[in-house]
Structure formats: structure tokens, C-alpha cells
């Protein structure tokens, strides 16, 4: 029925033989050349999938192969004999431009929502399914590394430390597991006025921050924010999220573009920055509730936050950019007295 011209190779020597392929209505192959003639049942043949108009191969049961560029005829034959549905569906997608455009939109939407909601939701589920020991394991060595790199011993007096620790501990009631949370004091010139929460429940506060604070309530506000990170297990979640993001991006770009080196690093960083902003908001929210529960004025948090901003070295380009960043204003607004608590809670 269908007569197709092609080349035949026996699979042992690279010598081509010009052949004529004749398929009958059941798809059985009758292969003819000048000096030979063979027949193959349709079921014994293997057809390579269609990819554009690239060369098509028909693998024969005796180890031989036929090559042809007659893609349409082969497709017709396969449709008539109802096989190769997978390749045909993919090829149909590949050959209709409008499907392509529609699927781009679908993919962008899917990809965007997966990165924005899917990955964080999975990481959250996984993090809370893991025992608290997972957080502890993450933090155990982190403190050693930080001590070596940016921290030195605190210069604060015994008395001041005890007072702050006592205030910190008394504010912990209502926390599920107060015994795993500890406050440590460190000096750090490079970090400046700052506080860090490690996943294990250790909160580190710098001497510089204690100096900068006008009163203990401001310190409590900052510590409450760090406790929010511990409570919501942000350390573990960040690790989980960023590894999934890096993995997904490596996977996609490694396979789909030759520009992987260029494109891989950038989006991962952007997405991670977004994640951490979300976590900051969550920790702020926790701090807000903490301050209300402990009857501390909300403006203590915004006061110290704006002072930390002002304190950070200005003048260089990057810092002026940071100062005008809307995130800080947004954070301060959350702690300004005009905002009703209802509004703040419904707006995480």
C-alpha cells in the first residue's frame, strides 16, 4: 500500500543499502532491495518517535534498521494501526503553535503558584512533621561556626546579663517548650546591633544592640521577633525550601537551556529573598502578639527598628537603597498604634 524509499543497515557493517519499504493494510513490512527481499510482521517492528522532521528509524527484529525521512507516511501507518499514542500526542502538541502558546501560559501560572505556595506549604508540612531534634541538629554546629567567624565574648556585666535573661525567661510563658530556649550574649563588630535566632532555640543578642536600646522593653521586642523565628521553625524551613528551589531550577535549566550557568543562580536568590521576607513578616506578627500579651507598648519595636536602620552605616549606594526600602516602613506600620489588632492579624 504505502511505498517508502529508505536506507537499510544490517547493524554489523556501516554499508547502506537502498531499499523500498512496502507496508500492507495491517502494517506488515515487505522490504525489497536489488539483491534481497524480506518480510516482517507489524508487531515485530519498532518505530522511533517522530521529532520534527528529523530522520525516522524503523528497527527490525533481526537487528537491522531502516532510515527514512518519510515521516508523514510512517505517522499515517501508525495511526491506522493504533500504536505509538504517546509519541503522537507529544508530536501533536509540538506541531500546533496555538497549543504551545496556551501551554506557556498554563506553565507560567503553574510554576508561579508552585514556587509561591507549593514549595513553602510542602516545606512547612515537612518541617512540622519532623521532630524538634531536627532543628536542634541544624543549630548545634551553627553556633560553633558563628563563634569562630563573627562573634567574640560579650563585654556586658554579669548583673546586666542576668537581668536581661530573667526578663527573657519570664516572657516565655505560653511557649510550648520553654526549656529548649536560651539567651546568649556576644560581641560582634561586623554584625553591629543585631540579634540572631538559631533553629535549636538559642537566641544570640549582640552587645551593640544592648547599647543601642533605650530600655529593656525595646530589647524584649527584638527578642520576641527572634522567638517568632524559632516558634515557626524558619531555620529548618529555609533549608528545606532553598534546597528544593535550587534543585528545581538546576533540573529545569540544566536540561532546557545552554545558559544554565547564567540563569540558574539569579532566580534562586530572588526567590529565597522573597521567602525570607515572608518569614520576617511572620516573626513580626509573633512579636506583635507577644508584646500585646506582655503589655509592652507596640511602638517599642518600631522605635528600635528605626534606630537600627539609622545606625547602620550610610552614605554608600547600597545602604541608601536599603533605607528607602518599603519593607521597613511596612514593618514599622504594623507596630504603629493606629493599626487595629484585628487588621494586623488578618493581614499576615
Amino acid at each position: 500500500m504505502n511505498r517508502i524509499d529508505g536506507l537499510y543497515f544490517d547493524g554489523r557493517v556501516s554499508r547502506p543499502t537502498r531499499v523500498q519499504l512496502n507496508f500492507d493494510s495491517e502494517g506488515n513490512l515487505d522490504l525489497r532491495a536489488r539483491d534481497f527481499h524480506r518480510e516482517y510482521a507489524f508487531g515485530t517492528l519498532k518505530f522511533s518517535p517522530r521529532i520534527g522532521n528529523a530522520q525516522r528509524d524503523i528497527f527490525l527484529p533481526d537487528g537491522g534498521k531502516c532510515e527514512t525521512f518519510a515521516n508523514d507516511e510512517i505517522d499515517k501507518l501508525l495511526i491506522e494501526n493504533r500504536t505509538g499514542w504517546f509519541g503522537r500526542v507529544v508530536h501533536a502538541l509540538e506541531s500546533h503553535f496555538i497549543y504551545g502558546l496556551a501551554s506557556v501560559l498554563l506553565t507560567l501560572g503553574f510554576g508561579w503558584s508552585f514556587v509561591n505556595y507549593g514549595i513553602p506549604a510542602i516545606a512547612k508540612e515537612v518541617a512540622f512533621a519532623l521532630p524538634l531534634e531536627a532543628d536542634a541538629a541544624l543549630g548545634r554546629h551553627a553556633l560553633d561556626v558563628l563563634d569562630r567567624l563573627i562573634f567574640s565574648e560579650s563585654g556586658l556585666g554579669r548583673e546586666e546579663r542576668d537581668r536581661l535573661s530573667g526578663q527573657f525567661t519570664s516572657g516565655l510563658h505560653g511557649f510550648d517548650d520553654p526549656e529548649r530556649i536560651r539567651l546568649l550574649f556576644r560581641n560582634s563588630v561586623s554584625l553591629g546591633a543585631n540579634a540572631i535566632a538559631l533553629p535549636s532555640g538559642i537566641v544570640v543578642i549582640t552587645d551593640q544592640l544592648v547599647e543601642l536600646a533605650d530600655n529593656d522593653e525595646e530589647i524584649a521586642a527584638i527578642l520576641a521577633h527572634e522567638l517568632g523565628h524559632v516558634k515557626h521553625r524558619h531555620g529548618l524551613r529555609t533549608v528545606l525550601q532553598s534546597s528544593v528551589v535550587v534543585l528545581v531550577i538546576t533540573w529545569l535549566t540544566g536540561d532546557l537551556s545552554s545558559l544554565s550557568a547564567l540563569s540558574a543562580a539569579l532566580p534562586a536568590q530572588m526567590i529565597e529573598a522573597k521567602y525570607s521576607r515572608h518569614f520576617e513578616r511572620e516573626a513580626d506578627q509573633f512579636a506583635r502578639e507577644y508584646l500585646i500579651a506582655n503589655r509592652i507598648p507596640l511602638r517599642r519595636f518600631s522605635d528600635i527598628l528605626s534606630r537600627i536602620e539609622a545606625e547602620s552605616p550610610s552614605g554608600t549606594g547600597s545602604m541608601t537603597f536599603l533605607a528607602s526600602h518599603p519593607a521597613t516602613e511596612e514593618r514599622i506600620r504594623l507596630f504603629s498604634p493606629e493599626v487595629s489588632s484585628k487588621h494586623a492579624i488578618s493581614n499576615p
Binding site: G100, T107, G111
Partner: peptide
């Protein structure tokens, strides 16, 4: 292009 775009789409989906 059409092969590439289908590859991207199906890989993401």
C-alpha cells in the same frame, strides 16, 4: 521552538 516549548511545559507540569 515547538519541541522545546512542549519540553518546558511538560517538564514543569
Amino acid at each position: 521552538f515547538k519541541i522545546w516549548i512542549v519540553n518546558v511545559v511538560l517538564t514543569v507540569l
